[in-house]
Write a protein that binds this DNA or RNA. Structure first.
Lengths: 189, 189
DNA sequence: TGCAAGGTAAAGCGATCGTTCTACATGAGA
DNA sequence: TCTCATGTAGAACGATCGCTTTACCTTGCA
Protein backbone atom coordinates (compact mmCIF):
# COMPACT_ATOMS: atom_id res chain seq x y z
CA UNK A 1 0.00 0.00 0.00
CA UNK A 2 3.00 2.23 -0.49
CA UNK A 3 1.43 4.24 -3.27
CA UNK A 4 -1.79 4.98 -1.48
CA UNK A 5 0.02 5.95 1.72
CA UNK A 6 2.17 8.35 -0.25
CA UNK A 7 -0.90 9.90 -1.87
CA UNK A 8 -2.71 10.23 1.42
CA UNK A 9 0.33 11.97 2.86
CA UNK A 10 0.57 14.33 -0.11
CA UNK A 11 -3.08 15.25 0.32
CA UNK A 12 -2.53 16.15 3.96
CA UNK A 13 0.63 18.10 3.16
CA UNK A 14 -1.17 20.07 0.46
CA UNK A 15 -3.97 20.98 2.85
CA UNK A 16 -1.51 22.05 5.54
CA UNK A 17 0.56 24.25 3.24
CA UNK A 18 -2.56 25.78 1.72
CA UNK A 19 -4.00 26.62 5.12
CA UNK A 20 -0.90 27.76 6.98
CA UNK A 21 1.61 28.76 4.32
CA UNK A 22 5.03 27.22 3.82
CA UNK A 23 6.88 28.86 6.67
CA UNK A 24 4.65 28.30 9.67
CA UNK A 25 4.10 24.54 9.83
CA UNK A 26 7.03 22.62 11.23
CA UNK A 27 7.59 19.01 10.36
CA UNK A 28 5.65 18.01 13.46
CA UNK A 29 2.59 19.90 12.20
CA UNK A 30 3.00 18.33 8.77
CA UNK A 31 3.10 14.91 10.40
CA UNK A 32 -0.20 15.66 12.13
CA UNK A 33 -1.76 16.92 8.89
CA UNK A 34 -0.58 13.84 7.01
CA UNK A 35 -1.91 11.56 9.73
CA UNK A 36 1.17 9.34 9.88
CA UNK A 37 4.20 8.99 12.07
CA UNK A 38 7.31 11.05 11.57
CA UNK A 39 9.20 7.98 10.47
CA UNK A 40 6.66 7.12 7.78
CA UNK A 41 6.54 10.71 6.63
CA UNK A 42 10.30 10.75 6.14
CA UNK A 43 10.23 7.37 4.45
CA UNK A 44 8.03 8.73 1.65
CA UNK A 45 9.39 12.27 1.58
CA UNK A 46 12.96 12.25 2.82
CA UNK A 47 13.23 16.00 3.47
CA UNK A 48 10.99 18.98 4.09
CA UNK A 49 11.79 20.18 0.60
CA UNK A 50 10.57 16.86 -0.81
CA UNK A 51 7.35 17.31 1.16
CA UNK A 52 6.81 20.67 -0.53
CA UNK A 53 7.40 19.19 -3.97
CA UNK A 54 5.07 16.29 -3.18
CA UNK A 55 2.37 18.68 -2.07
CA UNK A 56 2.79 20.78 -5.22
CA UNK A 57 2.58 17.79 -7.56
CA UNK A 58 -0.54 16.57 -5.80
CA UNK A 59 -1.99 20.06 -6.00
CA UNK A 60 -1.37 20.23 -9.72
CA UNK A 61 -3.25 16.99 -10.43
CA UNK A 62 -6.05 18.12 -8.17
CA UNK A 63 -6.38 21.47 -9.95
CA UNK A 64 -6.43 19.99 -13.44
CA UNK A 65 -9.19 17.60 -12.36
CA UNK A 66 -11.12 20.52 -10.88
CA UNK A 67 -10.92 22.44 -14.16
CA UNK A 68 -11.97 19.48 -16.27
CA UNK A 69 -15.19 18.99 -14.33
CA UNK A 70 -17.99 20.40 -16.46
CA UNK A 71 -15.67 21.50 -19.27
CA UNK A 72 -17.76 22.19 -22.44
CA UNK A 73 -17.02 19.96 -25.40
CA UNK A 74 -17.72 22.07 -28.45
CA UNK A 75 -15.83 24.94 -30.08
CA UNK A 76 -16.25 28.61 -29.19
CA UNK A 77 -15.27 30.66 -26.17
CA UNK A 78 -16.93 28.21 -23.76
CA UNK A 79 -13.85 26.25 -22.64
CA UNK A 80 -11.75 29.35 -22.00
CA UNK A 81 -14.46 31.07 -19.99
CA UNK A 82 -15.13 27.83 -18.12
CA UNK A 83 -11.59 27.92 -16.72
CA UNK A 84 -12.09 31.39 -15.23
CA UNK A 85 -15.47 30.47 -13.84
CA UNK A 86 -14.03 27.38 -12.16
CA UNK A 87 -11.04 29.29 -10.82
CA UNK A 88 -13.23 31.45 -8.63
CA UNK A 89 -14.67 28.73 -6.37
CA UNK A 90 -11.28 27.01 -6.39
CA UNK A 91 -9.71 30.06 -4.83
CA UNK A 92 -12.50 30.39 -2.31
CA UNK A 93 -12.43 26.77 -1.23
CA UNK A 94 -8.88 25.65 -1.73
CA UNK A 95 -6.54 28.61 -1.87
CA UNK A 96 -7.48 31.16 0.78
CA UNK A 97 -3.86 32.36 0.93
CA UNK A 98 -3.21 32.54 -2.80
CA UNK A 99 -1.59 30.36 -5.41
CA UNK A 100 0.32 27.54 -3.74
CA UNK A 101 2.95 27.51 -6.47
CA UNK A 102 3.66 31.23 -6.31
CA UNK A 103 3.84 31.02 -2.54
CA UNK A 104 6.15 28.02 -2.58
CA UNK A 105 8.55 29.77 -4.92
CA UNK A 106 8.40 32.91 -2.81
CA UNK A 107 9.43 30.95 0.26
CA UNK A 108 12.11 28.86 -1.43
CA UNK A 109 13.66 30.98 -4.18
CA UNK A 110 16.88 28.95 -4.04
CA UNK A 111 15.43 25.46 -4.30
CA UNK A 112 15.80 23.99 -7.77
CA UNK A 113 13.41 21.12 -7.10
CA UNK A 114 10.65 23.49 -6.05
CA UNK A 115 11.35 25.93 -8.89
CA UNK A 116 11.06 23.05 -11.37
CA UNK A 117 7.78 21.85 -9.85
CA UNK A 118 6.35 25.35 -10.15
CA UNK A 119 7.55 25.84 -13.72
CA UNK A 120 6.08 22.48 -14.67
CA UNK A 121 2.66 23.50 -13.37
CA UNK A 122 2.69 26.93 -14.95
CA UNK A 123 3.81 25.53 -18.30
CA UNK A 124 0.94 23.04 -18.24
CA UNK A 125 -1.53 25.77 -17.37
CA UNK A 126 -0.35 27.75 -20.37
CA UNK A 127 -0.66 24.62 -22.49
CA UNK A 128 -4.22 24.22 -21.26
CA UNK A 129 -5.10 27.67 -22.59
CA UNK A 130 -3.45 26.85 -25.90
CA UNK A 131 -5.63 23.73 -26.14
CA UNK A 132 -8.76 25.74 -25.37
CA UNK A 133 -7.85 28.29 -28.04
CA UNK A 134 -7.25 25.65 -30.69
CA UNK A 135 -10.63 24.19 -29.93
CA UNK A 136 -12.27 27.61 -29.95
CA UNK A 137 -10.65 28.63 -33.19
CA UNK A 138 -9.47 25.53 -35.09
CA UNK A 139 -7.53 27.37 -37.78
CA UNK A 140 -5.67 29.66 -35.37
CA UNK A 141 -2.04 30.34 -36.27
CA UNK A 142 0.84 29.44 -33.98
CA UNK A 143 1.68 33.08 -33.42
CA UNK A 144 -1.86 34.06 -32.46
CA UNK A 145 -2.18 31.00 -30.26
CA UNK A 146 0.93 31.90 -28.32
CA UNK A 147 0.03 35.56 -28.03
CA UNK A 148 -3.53 34.96 -26.85
CA UNK A 149 -2.51 32.05 -24.67
CA UNK A 150 0.02 34.23 -22.89
CA UNK A 151 -2.60 36.92 -22.36
CA UNK A 152 -5.09 34.44 -20.93
CA UNK A 153 -2.37 33.07 -18.67
CA UNK A 154 -1.71 36.57 -17.38
CA UNK A 155 -5.42 36.97 -16.63
CA UNK A 156 -5.38 33.60 -14.86
CA UNK A 157 -2.46 34.61 -12.68
CA UNK A 158 -4.01 38.01 -12.08
CA UNK A 159 -7.34 36.60 -10.92
CA UNK A 160 -5.46 34.25 -8.61
CA UNK A 161 -3.38 37.01 -7.05
CA UNK A 162 -6.13 39.64 -6.89
CA UNK A 163 -8.52 37.27 -5.16
CA UNK A 164 -6.40 37.37 -2.03
CA UNK A 165 -6.15 41.13 -1.83
CA UNK A 166 -9.45 42.34 -3.21
CA UNK A 167 -11.89 39.46 -2.94
CA UNK A 168 -13.17 36.57 -5.00
CA UNK A 169 -16.13 38.29 -6.59
CA UNK A 170 -14.36 41.37 -7.93
CA UNK A 171 -11.40 39.40 -9.25
CA UNK A 172 -13.64 36.80 -10.86
CA UNK A 173 -15.81 39.34 -12.63
CA UNK A 174 -12.78 41.33 -13.78
CA UNK A 175 -11.07 38.23 -15.17
CA UNK A 176 -14.17 37.24 -17.12
CA UNK A 177 -14.49 40.78 -18.45
CA UNK A 178 -10.90 40.65 -19.66
CA UNK A 179 -11.17 37.22 -21.25
CA UNK A 180 -14.37 38.13 -23.04
CA UNK A 181 -13.07 41.42 -24.37
CA UNK A 182 -9.89 39.71 -25.53
CA UNK A 183 -11.74 36.93 -27.37
CA UNK A 184 -14.30 39.33 -28.80
CA UNK A 185 -11.49 41.41 -30.27
CA UNK A 186 -10.46 38.25 -32.14
CA UNK A 187 -14.05 37.49 -33.21
CA UNK A 188 -14.33 34.38 -31.06
CA UNK A 189 -17.72 34.14 -29.35
CA UNK B 1 19.10 61.68 12.43
CA UNK B 2 16.49 59.22 13.56
CA UNK B 3 14.36 59.57 10.48
CA UNK B 4 17.13 59.13 7.98
CA UNK B 5 18.58 56.16 9.84
CA UNK B 6 15.20 54.51 9.85
CA UNK B 7 14.83 55.10 6.11
CA UNK B 8 18.28 53.78 5.36
CA UNK B 9 17.46 50.65 7.35
CA UNK B 10 14.17 50.18 5.53
CA UNK B 11 15.93 50.45 2.20
CA UNK B 12 18.35 47.71 3.16
CA UNK B 13 15.59 45.51 4.53
CA UNK B 14 13.60 45.90 1.33
CA UNK B 15 16.58 44.89 -0.77
CA UNK B 16 17.28 41.87 1.40
CA UNK B 17 13.70 40.61 1.36
CA UNK B 18 13.43 41.18 -2.39
CA UNK B 19 16.61 39.27 -3.09
CA UNK B 20 16.30 36.39 -0.63
CA UNK B 21 12.61 36.11 0.19
CA UNK B 22 11.09 36.47 3.63
CA UNK B 23 12.03 33.11 5.07
CA UNK B 24 15.72 32.78 4.33
CA UNK B 25 17.32 35.88 5.83
CA UNK B 26 17.71 35.73 9.58
CA UNK B 27 17.91 38.87 11.65
CA UNK B 28 21.70 38.76 11.41
CA UNK B 29 21.50 38.89 7.62
CA UNK B 30 18.98 41.72 7.85
CA UNK B 31 21.37 43.62 10.10
CA UNK B 32 24.13 43.25 7.51
CA UNK B 33 21.78 44.37 4.72
CA UNK B 34 20.68 47.39 6.74
CA UNK B 35 24.28 48.28 7.56
CA UNK B 36 23.66 49.00 11.25
CA UNK B 37 24.14 47.19 14.51
CA UNK B 38 21.61 44.75 15.88
CA UNK B 39 20.77 47.13 18.67
CA UNK B 40 20.03 50.02 16.29
CA UNK B 41 18.00 47.73 14.06
CA UNK B 42 15.81 46.67 16.98
CA UNK B 43 15.51 50.24 18.21
CA UNK B 44 13.84 51.31 14.96
CA UNK B 45 12.02 48.05 14.22
CA UNK B 46 11.37 46.24 17.49
CA UNK B 47 10.58 42.85 15.97
CA UNK B 48 11.17 40.93 12.79
CA UNK B 49 7.52 41.47 11.90
CA UNK B 50 8.03 45.22 12.22
CA UNK B 51 11.02 44.94 9.91
CA UNK B 52 8.81 43.30 7.29
CA UNK B 53 6.19 46.04 7.59
CA UNK B 54 8.88 48.71 7.39
CA UNK B 55 10.30 47.15 4.26
CA UNK B 56 6.85 46.93 2.67
CA UNK B 57 6.00 50.55 3.41
CA UNK B 58 9.32 51.66 1.97
CA UNK B 59 8.73 49.47 -1.08
CA UNK B 60 5.34 51.03 -1.65
CA UNK B 61 6.72 54.57 -1.72
CA UNK B 62 9.54 53.45 -3.94
CA UNK B 63 7.16 51.80 -6.42
CA UNK B 64 4.83 54.79 -6.67
CA UNK B 65 7.81 57.04 -7.38
CA UNK B 66 8.98 54.59 -10.05
CA UNK B 67 5.61 54.68 -11.78
CA UNK B 68 5.35 58.46 -11.69
CA UNK B 69 8.65 58.91 -13.53
CA UNK B 70 7.79 59.80 -17.11
CA UNK B 71 4.04 59.61 -16.54
CA UNK B 72 2.23 61.37 -19.46
CA UNK B 73 0.21 64.43 -18.51
CA UNK B 74 -2.63 64.53 -21.00
CA UNK B 75 -5.82 62.48 -21.37
CA UNK B 76 -6.11 59.24 -23.33
CA UNK B 77 -4.79 55.75 -22.78
CA UNK B 78 -1.23 56.98 -22.21
CA UNK B 79 -1.15 56.97 -18.40
CA UNK B 80 -2.65 53.49 -18.11
CA UNK B 81 -0.28 51.98 -20.65
CA UNK B 82 2.62 53.81 -19.03
CA UNK B 83 2.03 51.87 -15.82
CA UNK B 84 2.35 48.53 -17.59
CA UNK B 85 5.40 49.65 -19.50
CA UNK B 86 7.10 50.77 -16.29
CA UNK B 87 6.12 47.58 -14.46
CA UNK B 88 8.24 45.46 -16.75
CA UNK B 89 11.66 46.94 -15.92
CA UNK B 90 10.59 47.22 -12.28
CA UNK B 91 10.11 43.47 -12.14
CA UNK B 92 13.40 42.83 -13.91
CA UNK B 93 15.43 45.14 -11.70
CA UNK B 94 13.69 45.14 -8.37
CA UNK B 95 11.47 42.06 -8.02
CA UNK B 96 13.26 38.99 -9.38
CA UNK B 97 11.27 36.78 -7.00
CA UNK B 98 7.85 38.33 -7.57
CA UNK B 99 5.65 40.85 -5.84
CA UNK B 100 7.04 41.63 -2.40
CA UNK B 101 3.56 42.15 -0.98
CA UNK B 102 2.14 38.88 -2.26
CA UNK B 103 5.21 37.07 -0.98
CA UNK B 104 5.05 38.72 2.41
CA UNK B 105 1.43 37.72 2.86
CA UNK B 106 2.20 34.21 1.69
CA UNK B 107 4.86 33.87 4.36
CA UNK B 108 2.89 35.50 7.17
CA UNK B 109 -0.79 34.71 6.60
CA UNK B 110 -1.54 35.18 10.30
CA UNK B 111 0.06 38.57 10.83
CA UNK B 112 -2.46 41.39 10.97
CA UNK B 113 0.17 44.10 10.68
CA UNK B 114 1.56 42.61 7.48
CA UNK B 115 -1.89 41.90 6.04
CA UNK B 116 -2.83 45.53 6.61
CA UNK B 117 0.35 46.80 4.96
CA UNK B 118 -0.35 44.64 1.92
CA UNK B 119 -3.99 45.68 1.66
CA UNK B 120 -2.95 49.30 1.93
CA UNK B 121 -0.60 48.97 -1.02
CA UNK B 122 -3.04 47.03 -3.18
CA UNK B 123 -5.84 49.50 -2.46
CA UNK B 124 -3.61 52.40 -3.52
CA UNK B 125 -2.60 50.59 -6.68
CA UNK B 126 -6.26 50.17 -7.56
CA UNK B 127 -6.81 53.85 -6.79
CA UNK B 128 -3.96 54.70 -9.13
CA UNK B 129 -5.75 52.94 -11.99
CA UNK B 130 -8.98 54.76 -11.13
CA UNK B 131 -7.09 58.06 -11.37
CA UNK B 132 -5.63 57.11 -14.73
CA UNK B 133 -9.06 56.15 -16.02
CA UNK B 134 -10.65 59.41 -14.90
CA UNK B 135 -7.92 61.28 -16.70
CA UNK B 136 -8.28 59.12 -19.80
CA UNK B 137 -12.04 59.43 -19.86
CA UNK B 138 -13.12 62.49 -17.84
CA UNK B 139 -16.85 61.79 -17.93
CA UNK B 140 -16.52 58.14 -16.92
CA UNK B 141 -19.21 56.85 -14.57
CA UNK B 142 -18.43 55.44 -11.14
CA UNK B 143 -19.59 51.99 -12.16
CA UNK B 144 -17.42 51.87 -15.29
CA UNK B 145 -14.48 53.29 -13.39
CA UNK B 146 -14.69 50.56 -10.79
CA UNK B 147 -15.22 47.79 -13.33
CA UNK B 148 -12.37 48.83 -15.61
CA UNK B 149 -10.12 49.68 -12.69
CA UNK B 150 -10.61 46.21 -11.26
CA UNK B 151 -9.81 44.67 -14.64
CA UNK B 152 -6.63 46.71 -14.99
CA UNK B 153 -5.65 45.75 -11.47
CA UNK B 154 -6.05 42.08 -12.38
CA UNK B 155 -3.80 42.60 -15.39
CA UNK B 156 -1.28 44.36 -13.15
CA UNK B 157 -1.24 41.48 -10.70
CA UNK B 158 -1.10 39.00 -13.55
CA UNK B 159 1.88 40.60 -15.21
CA UNK B 160 3.63 40.67 -11.85
CA UNK B 161 3.00 37.00 -11.15
CA UNK B 162 3.58 35.73 -14.69
CA UNK B 163 6.91 37.52 -14.96
CA UNK B 164 8.41 35.13 -12.44
CA UNK B 165 7.21 31.96 -14.10
CA UNK B 166 7.28 32.80 -17.79
CA UNK B 167 9.60 35.75 -18.21
CA UNK B 168 9.50 39.52 -18.33
CA UNK B 169 9.07 39.94 -22.05
CA UNK B 170 6.11 37.60 -22.57
CA UNK B 171 4.27 38.87 -19.50
CA UNK B 172 4.88 42.49 -20.42
CA UNK B 173 3.65 42.09 -23.98
CA UNK B 174 0.61 40.12 -22.85
CA UNK B 175 -0.33 42.72 -20.25
CA UNK B 176 -0.10 45.53 -22.79
CA UNK B 177 -2.20 43.51 -25.23
CA UNK B 178 -4.86 43.06 -22.56
CA UNK B 179 -4.88 46.67 -21.45
CA UNK B 180 -5.11 47.93 -25.02
CA UNK B 181 -7.90 45.57 -26.01
CA UNK B 182 -9.80 46.49 -22.86
CA UNK B 183 -9.49 50.22 -23.44
CA UNK B 184 -10.21 49.91 -27.15
CA UNK B 185 -13.44 48.10 -26.32
CA UNK B 186 -14.41 51.23 -24.37
CA UNK B 187 -13.31 53.54 -27.21
CA UNK B 188 -10.40 54.99 -25.25
CA UNK B 189 -7.34 55.43 -27.44
C1' DT C 1 5.99 -20.82 12.83
C1' DG C 2 8.94 -17.32 11.68
C1' DC C 3 10.47 -13.33 9.55
C1' DA C 4 10.62 -9.30 6.65
C1' DA C 5 8.15 -5.01 5.53
C1' DG C 6 6.17 -1.14 7.00
C1' DG C 7 3.70 0.97 10.52
C1' DT C 8 3.58 3.85 15.54
C1' DA C 9 5.35 6.81 19.44
C1' DA C 10 8.65 9.59 21.25
C1' DA C 11 13.31 10.95 22.87
C1' DG C 12 17.23 13.34 21.43
C1' DC C 13 20.66 15.47 18.04
C1' DG C 14 23.14 19.81 16.64
C1' DA C 15 22.06 23.99 14.49
C1' DT C 16 19.78 28.12 14.10
C1' DC C 17 16.21 31.20 15.25
C1' DG C 18 14.47 35.91 17.23
C1' DT C 19 15.52 38.59 20.97
C1' DT C 20 17.92 40.74 24.91
C1' DC C 21 21.79 42.32 27.29
C1' DT C 22 26.48 44.04 28.45
C1' DA C 23 30.12 47.17 27.51
C1' DC C 24 31.83 50.94 25.11
C1' DA C 25 32.25 55.20 21.52
C1' DT C 26 30.65 59.61 19.75
C1' DG C 27 28.62 64.13 19.16
C1' DA C 28 25.36 67.93 20.48
C1' DG C 29 23.26 70.82 23.89
C1' DA C 30 22.65 72.44 29.03
C1' DT D 1 32.28 69.75 31.62
C1' DC D 2 28.56 66.72 32.13
C1' DT D 3 24.82 64.21 30.23
C1' DC D 4 21.92 61.90 27.28
C1' DA D 5 20.49 60.17 22.94
C1' DT D 6 22.14 57.36 19.56
C1' DG D 7 25.41 54.72 17.59
C1' DT D 8 28.84 50.18 17.52
C1' DA D 9 30.27 45.08 18.43
C1' DG D 10 29.14 40.89 19.98
C1' DA D 11 28.05 37.41 23.73
C1' DA D 12 24.31 34.86 25.45
C1' DC D 13 19.37 33.44 26.26
C1' DG D 14 15.63 29.99 25.70
C1' DA D 15 12.86 28.15 22.13
C1' DT D 16 12.24 25.83 18.11
C1' DC D 17 13.80 23.95 13.90
C1' DG D 18 14.66 19.81 10.57
C1' DC D 19 16.08 15.43 11.08
C1' DT D 20 17.77 10.82 13.12
C1' DT D 21 17.40 7.22 16.08
C1' DT D 22 15.67 3.75 19.31
C1' DA D 23 12.27 0.57 20.67
C1' DC D 24 8.18 -1.69 19.86
C1' DC D 25 3.76 -3.27 17.30
C1' DT D 26 1.01 -5.28 13.31
C1' DT D 27 0.34 -7.69 9.04
C1' DG D 28 0.98 -10.94 5.13
C1' DC D 29 3.12 -14.65 3.27
C1' DA D 30 6.83 -18.59 2.57
Amino acid sequence: MTIRTSDKIAEGLEAAFAAEGFAAPGVDALRDAAGVSLRTLYRHYPSREAMVVGALDHRHRSYLAWLQRGMPEGPGAGPVLHVFRRLRPWMAERAPNGCLFVNALAEHPDSNAIREAVKRQKAETRALFADCLRRAWPDIGDEDCRRLGDALFVVHEGQTAATVTCGCAEAGVAALTLAESLLRAENIE
